[in-house]
Design a protein around this nucleic acid. Sequence first.
DNA 1: GCCGTTTTCGGCCCGACTGTTTTCAGTCG
Length: 582
Amino acid sequence: MENLEIARALADVAGLLEISGANPFRIRAYENAARTVEAHAVPLRRMVAEGAALTELPGIGKDIAGAIVELVETGRLARLEALKQEIPGSLLELTRLPGLGAKRVRRLWQELGVQTLDDLERAARADEIKELEGFGATTQQKILDGIAVRRRHVERIKWVDAAQFVEPLLAYLRAAPGAQRVEVAGSYRRHRETVRDVDLLVMAEDSGPVVERFVSYAEVARTELAGDTKATVVLKSGLQVDLRVVSPASYGAALVYFTGSKEHNVALRKRAVGRGLRVSEYGVCRVGEAEAAADDPFAGEYLAGAEEDDVYEALELRWIPPEVREDRGEIEAAAQGSLPALITENQLRGDLQMHSTWSDGKDSLEAMLDACVARGYEYFAITDHSKALAMTGGLDERKLRAQWEEIDEIVSRRTEIRVLRGMEVDILIDGQLDLEDALLAELDLVVVSVHSHFGLPAAEQTERILRAVQHPSVHVLAHPTGRLINRREPMEFDLDEVLRAAAASGVAVELNAHPDRLDLKDTQLRRAKELGVPVVISTDAHRTEDLSLMRHGIAQARRAWLEPGDVLNTRSVDDLLASLRS
DNA sequence: GCCGTTTTCGGCCCGACTGTTTTCAGTCG
């Protein structure tokens, strides 16, 4: 049982308690614990096995620690099952629709008998919901819209969630008899932000024992198919995993083939045909007309297949990093030797968005400093929320000045890293900023972002954001579209116009590295680069552990073809400050 | 249910917005 599954179980308890009308603080305790578990880097199953004290973790006391042990040891949670006896578990997913919370879902269930998404859709279409007291036509429509969004997203899971199941499975398969290499291919290897399933590739002379070990993995819920060299299973978590075992001679070709994307592969094969070659998952062959018509993938002269490098070379191409294999110009670039030198994580010298206990962060300013030092950064910006985000304890002028005092005090003792005085300032509904101009001017780094009124008409939204970007004190537009992967659609506005304005004003756009956001996304970042808009990659950390989310931002940046020169936080602090407009 | 330089009980982040309402419950973040 992985942390994500434990977190899900705890969150389900919280959700069902909420529907049942339990003590709100008890509910929050389960929510807090779920968040802690989800963010924790070490698998709790390992902590349980080693007898480590779970109660050391924030928000986890004796009771929930017991629940975690129960989950790890039995895979079940008695209190969750008891709750599901009272309340249909399917109500939980209804509470995740926008505009529906526990109270309304409870009423829909009790008054209309709604239990599932389908029930809800039927009731909405039959105009039953708008007749309920406290509901109306707008709410009913909002529910239908929410269902439509959910249906579009539900099949794909976030990369970071898949990773929790992939890593232990890889370790397990590497111990398979005869497995010489084990790698993930597919969209996971290309590091797409979400994946539908996971493709694993194993190099082995004898495939049987590998397939055998794969289908007997303890986390397998069911085996969909198991052949000589190929198997498909569904894990207990619901994640589908495909396995393919190939011989060493074909490993590189198979890796190219199974990494994809489909579009990239089609383009490769097209290029091959023009050169009298045939590319398959077994290798690259030179084929005459008769051989090309044959079904045998080994017909003709066998040129390459053992390594990816060889496959690309046979096609007169440089090796192409998986993140850009989308047929978006990478093959042409590889042919001309003009592939970008993609950014790597160790090139970053600082993190430019994070929160502390001054607003909704979980760790103190100095703890964040320690964590940034531990990561080897030369600088970081502390960017707590502004007052409009009351629920985060956002800072007004008085609190901001108090924070500066603390920063000054810390800086006087801690000289090993440069602390930038920043703030994540809310963009208000009319595009004004949530802090006095005089104070904005005193900050080293002004990050602005939208946290409310996501649904403004596109023209108004564009105007609003443009106004903020054009404010003379602003340096960075953070999480520009406001999307939350699988949960909230991006705001409707003219991103291109905003990017042009950012370029004109010397304002950077953020690539928010949080795996729920990854905002801007790859294609949008590439557009930003094209328009000459500088990018910063920031974690938006709310606790020290979150600083490690940077790798997701880096992966996204690589998908966007970004090079170190495109990203401001690869620069020294002096260069950074000089390149941010004054 | 968790937590404790208010320490074993009594707090626990809370203001704004939305859609539904004539005074506010529910939701969001």
